[in-house]
């Protein structure tokens, strides 16, 4: 596998197996997924619900183990501590401890990422500033709206200045102003050379942020679309996506 890849899936299959009262049920997560995302690239993963986007992200983070195939993250196996230290992850609907404030949460996650002392304090304040939560930094998160939670989620994802940022539905449920803020922020990260891998149902956001898109259908990567292709297409990325998944 190429060393310059930030994220690499080599013929990865993930099958979920569950059993209840002796009855074993198998369901497909992803199937024969082969994909490489280069360092510094901003890549979008599109697909309908249940197409395997979140499964792919969890495999990259070592939260799931592949049934077959190999995943490499920044040249290392997933769940490798050195790789995880370089990854920022924003899950779909990030879940925080409701009894903590954003400032306390970020300090906690920063420590887990190996930060400490003045550097930690500095990064926490900068991240809060970046996502516009500095004024609400000492409010308990149980009182936060969805948009504020999402902002805190992004703050924890970029807190430790990671090389690879994985975002699962980063703009879902956000109001138009927050979507614009998020887009500007993510655009800034791309410009800073970070590798961005994101999934979204908002095709227009993916279109604006990514230079290449992969379309997942029933767990399989059915199409890779470079920016030049959707720019040249009459219906844009949306047209190509609909044509692919229909």
């Amino acid at each position: 596998m190429a060393e310059a890849s930030a994220l690499e899936f080599g013929s990865v299959t993930k099958t979920y197996v569950s059993s209840h009262l002796g009855r074993v049920t198998r369901s497909r997560g992803v199937e024969e997924l082969s994909l490489g995302v280069a360092e510094g690239e901003s890549f979008g993963l599109l697909g309908l619900n249940g197409s395997g986007k979140t499964t792919a992200f969890k495999l990259a983070l070592g939260l799931l183990h592949p049934t077959r195939g190999e995943v490499r993250v920044l040249g290392r196996p997933p769940a490798d501590a050195a790789a995880l230290a370089q990854i920022g992850f924003l899950p779909e609907l990030p879940y925080f401890y409701p009894y903590l404030t954003p400032r306390e949460s970020l300090r906690f996650y920063g420590r887990l990422s190996g930060l400490g002392g003045a550097e930690l304090s500095d990064r926490v304040e900068r991240s809060l500033e970046l996502v516009g939560l500095r004024r609400d930094g000492d409010r308990r998160m149980r009182d936060f709206s969805k948009g504020m939670i999402q902002r805190a989620g992004l703050a924890q994802a970029v807190l430790h200045d990671p090389r690879l940022i994985i975002l699962d539905e980063p703009v879902s449920g956000l109001d138009p102003l927050a979507v614009k803020d998020f887009r500007d922020l993510l655009g800034g990260l791309c410009a800073a050379g970070k590798t961005l891998v994101l999934s979204s149902h908002s095709i227009s956001e993916v279109e604006k942020l990514c230079v290449r898109v992969g379309v997942l259908k029933a767990g399989r990567l059915v199409r890779l679309i470079p920016q030049s292709e959707w720019r040249a297409a009459a219906g844009g990325l949306e047209g190509l996506f609909v044509e692919t998944v229909r």
Binding site: L63, A81, A82, F89, P91, L93, Y95, Y97, G114
Partner: peptide, 14 residues
């Protein structure tokens, strides 16, 4: 259940 574990184990925490 609450998935707070995702934000912990997606960091370099064994």
């Amino acid at each position: 259940e609450t998935k707070t574990i995702y934000l912990i184990l997606s960091r370099p925490v064994g």
